[in-house]
Design a protein around this nucleic acid. Structure first.
Length: 869
RNA sequence: GGACGCUUAGCUCAGUGGGAGAGCAUCUGCUUGACGUGCAGAGGGUCAGGGGUUCAAAUCCCUUAGCGUCCACCA
């Protein structure tokens, strides 16, 4: 049944064709209503470009969960989908057009959107190809795109409903304006960066007086939009100036001096200029004082006619020239270096301008409040827990959400303005007499549609959708901590408002991928790693195993090629262990678990450890602790299975008892299959390849996850532990004493009660094979006695033995044991310990103490004997 | 100004109340019939500093220091 595997694991060969095979047999679409449902919707990647390592990590984690749950017998829906990523995609498309010398205005709205859709199709194909390369078990039969018809209907309905419920409104406010993209941004699309700027102190001349009022600003160019100067009403320094006028040094216009207790007397000179159209604080002051709000800039960040000679100049160039001019006019008191946080656009990285503009907003307080109440009582289970705090604190301090964007690529706002009366109509369909109306030109923030993702993808607003009934709320969301605000919080309030439920049972949060020295991967640093390159070199399985087992939940991950290589090495190890097992299977072998009832002590030793491993791994998987699951599997596979069981099995396998051989092989095959199944969620390709050689099932991905064997008898496998301990001790002796394997060692054994301990025939054969040692009668005097686990071994003297070397070894061991015995004795003679500690702990400590004591005495006697010689 | 995370072997990281762990790196030995991308061994750490709780602290609490991240409208 088996073709021999090549000695080297070839990831390219193993991975090729597997995904097509899975697709051909439609193994990943949810289609079993009789099974319990489990649902994950993929965080939809942006159609802006290819996937990076962060996506590979995020999706590999989801794939692990999906494959694990599928094997556990759930009707697993892992829904595929992508995000139109409004501003990001539009910027990319515009940039590409620009290379051809075309502006979006040349094409017009319709023509531009055609280009954007073409872009979307190109990158969607690219992304699907990458998903396939990574081996993701996605359900493509339900794939969605945030701009497709169904999701657009959902978006419209949500907008219209929220509007009529008074939760969406249009208002004139200070928003974050991106002068390059020429659109409004929400608060969280603004990245605050520390920038060294200036604090400019200007002299404002008081009209009809010789007095000068010094006023500071970090943005001198906005002085063209100033309407007054504020001082604190109780500020003694300025009481005599109340009601007077000053000259704006930039515009030379007269402005009043007004008072408001908002002003901090201790800050700067205690006088503050007010620019209502360019600063949120100034705006709210202007509201209470009914001041005019004048813009001094165009939407592209150049100065407007208010700036006089600087009209048309970029805001920062205007700053430079204006300051120079004022210095010449001796209107500058001083300029200080000033380090402060300046907002930058997340997408274009230009400095954001606080800018007065009419936009659409979502009223957040009532929506957030509902989520907070639900979260408090019966909320989503964040893993790790601490991220719940991030989530809650953001919702507690929430501001209204600016959702309109001055873009073309996105969901156009379903609001229609009457051309004459300016009456606004918000509805799912255009007004009947549409010729009299104009639809709002703006589109919605891309996160508005993403916020509906957990239910819009399942068919909402069609309440009769079977998927919606079965799969909402989703079982788990997997995402990075960087988008808790952008996405998780918004999905929460949309779901709570429209579905009356929070969208997820569990929220699994992971960190960010960093480079080897801990820096964020970014284009500007040029330190990004393309996951496809890694797959080319090491295979998707190795990459996935590295990504998902190299950090603990919620922590960041450094990309280190050596670690991917280590994962590859582990797979190669697994490959070769499988190769050994397969090579030993006789023609026509069919694995049959009923043979395990005749399992030998060696077999039971392995099966016992396998059961413990299955329990530990399953628990870790349920807790989303994939690092722990992975390391448990590596340890078991590499140490217990490969280094011990396979090596030990070589003896019975080379013997002449066919039944013993059959039982041994069945043990190995049974264990290997369990290992492959447990590894399958991590490394789907190689596990599928090897499993195919051991089983007639269609695919390991639809096999059932291992469970601990219920029928296995509890057996004492101490003899095997003693045997491995003996082998290790003799190996160490050979190395330290430089005794070649060709030189046979003669040994005899004494158990812990001092009686002679007889090896079984199999054990004796194993000793010969593995360490070339044979039992024989030895006079302990003149021989070497060493402690091993719950026994001692006496080794006959050998011509190569160097006693001074041996004494050093024994002294070291003696010192270690003395330390342990002292610790143990201290504990056991402590009344409080005996009284308060758990009885099992006390018992365990006693057992340790007596074993240490026994070994210690063996060593003492041995040292004594050597010194007497 | 708030919140969170990190500090453990040369490097990267696990561990989280009762004997300090892994991978890589280092050193020694090995043509063992699955694997030299391997096998068998070894060395290497006052678990950031200080205080507290406890019979018992790398682990829980407080505190200090350093590094990092996020949030925040101070001219």
């Amino acid at each position: 049944m088996t073709k021999p595997l090549p000695t080297r694991y070839d990831h390219k060969h193993v991975e090729s064709g597997k995904y097509d095979f899975w697709m051909k047999h439609d193994l990943f679409s949810a289609k079993s209503p009789e099974k319990p449902p489990f649902c994950i919707v993929i965080p939809p990647p942006n159609v802006t470009g290819k996937l990076h390592l962060g996506h590979a990590w995020d999706t590999a984690l989801q794939d692990i969960i999906a494959r694990f749950k599928r094997m556990q017998g759930f009707d697993m829906l892992w829904l595929a989908g992508m995000d139109h990523a409004g501003i990001a995609t539009q910027a990319k498309v515009e940039a590409r057009l620009k290379e051809e010398g075309i502006s979006k205005y040349d094409l017009g709205r319709e023509g531009f959107l055609e280009q954007a859709w073409a872009w979307k199709h190109t990158y969607a194909d690219f992304i699907r190809k990458q998903w396939a390369t990574l081996g993701l078990s996605l359900d493509y039969s339900r794939e969605r795109f945030t701009l497709d018809d169904g999701l657009s209907d959902a978006v419209k309905k949500v907008f219209v409903d929220l509007y009529h419920q008074g939760l969406i409104y249009q208002g004139e406010r200070i928003i974050n304006w991106d002068p390059q993209a020429q659109t409004a941004l929400s608060n969280i699309e603004v990245i605050h960066k520390e920038v060294e700027g200036g604090m400019y102190h200007f002299r404002f001349k008081v009209v009809d007086s010789d007095e000068i009022l010094v006023v500071a600003t970090t943005r001198p160019e906005t002085m063209f939009g100033d309407v007054c100067v504020f001082v604190h009403p109780l500020d003694e320094r300025y009481k005599h100036l109340h009601g007077k006028m000053v000259i704006n040094p930039a515009s030379k216009k007269m402005m009043p001096i007004l008072t408001d207790s908002y002003i901090d007397q201790s800050f700067g000179s205690g006088a503050m200029k007010c620019t209502p159209a360019h600063d949120p604080n100034d705006f709210s002051l202007a509201q209470t004082h009914h001041l005019e709000k004048v813009l001094c800039m165009h939407p592209d960040g150049t100065m407007n006619e208010l700036a006089g000679q600087y009209e048309g100049l970029d805001r920062f160039e205007c700053r430079t020239q204006l300051v120079k001019q004022l210095q010449e006019e001796d209107l500058v008191e001083r300029i200080e270096k000033h380090i402060h946080q300046v907002g930058h656009s997340e997408r274009t990285d230009v400095i954001v301008e606080p800018y007065l503009s009419k936009q659409w907003f979502v009223k957040m307080k009532p929506l957030a409040q509902k989520v907070l109440e639900k979260q408090h009582h019966n909320g989503m289970n964040f893993v790790p827990e601490r991220f719940e705090k991030t989530f809650v604190q953001w919702l507690e301090n929430i501001e209204d959400w600016c959702i309109s964007r001055q873009l073309w690529w996105g969901h156009r706002i379903p609001a229609y303005k009457h051309k004459v009366t300016e009456e606004i109509v918000v509805s799912l369909t255009p007004p009947q007499n549409m010729d009299d109306y104009i639809q709002d030109e703006d589109v919605l923030d891309t996160w508005f549609s993403s916020a509906l993702w957990p239910f819009s993808t399942l068919g909402w607003p069609d309440e009769s959708s079977q998927d919606l009934k079965r799969f909402f709320p989703n079982s788990v969301l997997v995402t990075g901590y960087d988008i808790i605000f952008f996405w998780v919080a918004r999905m929460a309030f949309m779901s709570e408002h429209f579905m009356n439920e929070l969208p997820f049972k569990d929220v699994l949060i992971h960190g960010l991928v960093r480079d080897a020295s801990g820096r964020k991967m970014s284009k500007s640093l040029g330190n990004g790693v393309d996951p496809m390159d890694v797959v080319e070199k090491y295979g998707a399985d190795a990459l996935r195993f590295f990504l998902t087992t190299s950090s603990s939940p919620g922590q960041d991950l450094r990309y280190m090629e050596e670690k991917v290589e280590a994962s590859w090495n582990f797979i190669n190890k697994l490959w070769n262990a499988s190769r050994f097992v397969l090579m030993n299977l006789p023609e026509g072998f069919k694995s049959d678990e009923s043979h395990l009832k005749d399992a030998s002590e060696l077999d039971l030793w392995l099966l016992t450890k396998l059961d413990a491993t299955i329990t530990q791994v399953s628990d870790a998987m349920e807790a989303y602790d994939f690092g722990l699951a992975g390391s448990t599997l590596v340890n078991f596979t590499w140490n217990d299975f490969c280094s011990w069981s396979i090596e030990l099995a070589k003896v019975p396998l080379s013997g002449h008892d066919d039944h013993v051989k059959l039982v041994t092989l069945n043990t190995l095959v049974y264990t290997l299959k369990a290992i492959l199944k447990m590894l399958h969620p991590f490394m789907p390709f190689v596990s599928e390849e090897i499993y195919g050689q051991l089983s007639d099932e269609l695919s390991i991905s639809v096999s059932s996850y291992p469970t601990p064997s219920q029928s296995m008898k509890k057996v004492d496998v101490t003899r095997v532990d003693r045997l491995t301990s003996l082998i290790s001790a003799l190996r160490e002796l050979r190395l330290s004493q430089n005794i070649k394997k060709a030189n046979e060692l003669i040994i005899s054994l004494i158990d812990e009660s001092g009686h002679s301990y007889k090896l079984s025939e199999l054990e004796a054969d194993i000793l010969v094979k593995m360490v070339n040692a044979r039992s024989g009668d030895i006079n302990p005097e003149g021989a070497l006695t060493l402690p091993i686990l719950s026994a001692s071994v006496i080794v006959s003297m050998h011509e190569h033995m160097d006693m001074s070397e041996q004494i050093t070894k024994l002294e070291t061991l003696k010192a270690q044991l003395e330390k342990e015995i002292a610790r143990s004795k201290a504990m056991l003679s402590n009344e409080s310990f005996l009284a308060k500690a758990q009885p099992s702990k006390v018992e365990a400590e006693r057992a340790k103490a007596s074993e240490y004591q026994r070994q210690y005495e063996t060593i003492l006697a041995q040292l004594d004997a050597i010194l007497k010689r």
